[in-house]
Simulated scan of single mutants.
Amino acid sequence: MPVRSATAADLPAIKAIYDGQVAGGIATFDLEPPPVSYWEHRLASTDRGDHLLVADEDGVVGYAYSSAYRPRPAYRHTRETSVYVDPAAHGRGLGRALYDELLRRLRTDGMRTAVAVVALPNPGSRALHRACGFEPVGVLREVGHKFDRWIDTEWWQIALAG
C-alpha cells in the first residue's frame, strides 16, 4: 500500500474526505468544513512528531496525521493521531497501512505516547485502533453534540517507547 508524506497537491482530496465526515459522520465534531488553510497549516508544520500522510492509489483515498496533544511543553513527547479513509475505500487495509507508517515515524521521532479519540459508536475505528496496538483508556460521556444527539468519545493510547 503506497503511503507517503502529503504534498500541497493532496490537500483538496484530504479536505474532501474530511468534509464528508463533517457533513455526514461523527468522526469529527466540526460542524462546518474548515478552509484549505487549515490543511496548509498542518502540512507546513515542522514540529517534531507532526506528520500528514496519505494513502495513494491513483489518487488520495485516505490520510493520517499526528499533532500536538496539548500546547504545554511537558506534553511534547505525546502526539494525538487521526486516520480518515474515503468510505468507498473502507475494508481494504488502508487505515492499518496509514497507522503503521505514522506510528513508525513517531517512534523514529522519539515520541513516547500516541493518543486517539474515537466517537462512539464506531466499531470499525475501535477495531483498527486495537489492531494497531492502542488500548482504550476511558470514555467521556456526551461531550459532543451533532446531528441532534449527544455523542460519547473514547480515548485510546499506545506506548511508542519502552
Rank of each mutant, 00 (worst) to 15 (best):
F147D: 12
K15Y: 01
L31Q: 13
G91N: 10
L160E: 05
G144F: 05
D58R: 11
D19C: 04
Y99P: 02
L128T: 04
R141E: 14
G20L: 12
V60H: 10
V115P: 04
A74N: 12
L53R: 00
S5A: 15
H41A: 15
L106I: 03
Y65V: 00
G59F: 09
P136M: 08
A74I: 10
R42V: 05
A74E: 09
R72E: 12
G95C: 07
L102V: 06
Y69H: 14
D148K: 14
E32L: 13
K146P: 06
P121S: 02
A74M: 09
W156D: 09
L98R: 03
M111C: 15
V60E: 07
G110K: 08
S82W: 02
A68W: 04
R149C: 02
P73F: 13
I158Y: 02
S125Q: 05
S82P: 03
L52Q: 02
E154V: 03
F29L: 02
G49V: 08
E57T: 04
A131E: 03
V36P: 00
G20R: 12
M1Y: 05
R96L: 13
P34D: 06
G49C: 11
N122Q: 10
R92G: 00
E135K: 14
T46C: 13
T113P: 00
D58T: 05
I26Q: 10
R126S: 14
L53S: 07
P87T: 10
G25D: 04
R130C: 01
R42Q: 14
V115K: 03
T28S: 11
S66W: 01
A64R: 01
L31S: 10
G24Q: 14
E32C: 00
V36S: 09
G162W: 05
I17T: 05
T28C: 08
V83S: 03
R42P: 00
T46H: 14
R42Y: 12
V118C: 12
I158G: 03
R92V: 01
T153A: 14
G62C: 03
D50P: 00
A27Y: 02
V137D: 06
M1Q: 06
D19I: 05
L53H: 05
H51D: 03
K15T: 05
W39H: 00
D109M: 04
L94V: 14
A116D: 05
P87L: 10
A116W: 00
V139I: 15
D100K: 13
W156Q: 09
E32G: 01
M111P: 01
H90V: 06
Y18E: 05
R76L: 10
S125D: 08
A44Q: 12
G133T: 11
W155Y: 15
W150F: 15
W150N: 09
T46A: 14
V83R: 00
V22P: 06
Y99G: 02
L11M: 11
V118N: 01
S37A: 15
G133C: 07
T7M: 13
V115E: 04
G133N: 07
G20N: 12
